[in-house]
Simulated assay, not measured.
Amino acid sequence: MKKSVLIVENDHDIRTIVELILLEQGFQTLSMPEPDDLAEIVVFRPDLILLDEFINNKPGHRLCRKIKQVPDLAGVPVIILSTANDIELIAKECDANDYIRKPFDLEDMVEKVLRFLDHQSLAL
């Protein structure tokens, strides 16, 4: 069964590239600029969430905190994506499992996702 990754990213180009790369790696993906509500995430049942820190001018770390409070999602790893200088602190405070500083190298992003999902990598 394919592992699934939810990509919540405000920037359309980044969202599309990340989704294409993860699809090439054999993941099932769902990407969106912003979820309508947490139920949408619960229904998808992702194995990992890549979460932009800035979602339509709202802080993504608030969504991360909400995700971690939902029993069906609490164990799902969340990786925060951000250009913020204090992204390490932001990720820690919202109980994200890790962070990726933008701009990022796609191979590094894939390696981080693979580490969390114990998935065998295909060459980029």
Rank of each mutant, 00 (worst) to 15 (best):
V8K: 00
N10H: 13
D11M: 09
D11I: 06
H12M: 05
D13H: 14
D13N: 13
I14M: 08
R15Y: 04
R15S: 15
T16C: 10
T16M: 15
I17P: 06
I17K: 01
I17N: 04
V18M: 13
V18H: 04
V18D: 00
E19R: 08
E19N: 15
I21D: 02
I21Q: 13
L22E: 00
L23Y: 08
E24P: 01
E24Q: 14
E24V: 07
E24A: 10
E24C: 13
Q25M: 02
Q25G: 04
G26N: 04
G26T: 02
G26K: 07
F27Y: 15
T29E: 10
L30T: 03
L30E: 01
S31F: 09
M32E: 06
M32G: 09
M32D: 06
P33I: 09
P33R: 12
E34L: 14
P35S: 05
P35T: 07
P35I: 04
D36M: 09
D37K: 08
D37A: 09
L38G: 05
L38S: 02
A39E: 15
E40S: 11
E40C: 10
I41L: 00
V42D: 02
V43F: 08
F44Q: 13
R45G: 14
P46W: 01
P46G: 06
L50M: 12
L50G: 04
L50D: 01
D52I: 00
D52S: 02
E53W: 06
F54W: 11
F54I: 14
F54A: 12
I55Y: 03
I55P: 10
N56R: 12
N57Q: 13
N57G: 09
K58V: 10
K58C: 05
P59I: 07
P59M: 12
G60W: 00
G60M: 01
G60R: 08
H61I: 03
H61T: 11
H61P: 01
R62G: 14
R62F: 08
L63V: 01
L63T: 02
L63I: 04
L63Q: 00
C64R: 02
R65D: 09
R65W: 02
K66Q: 15
K66G: 06
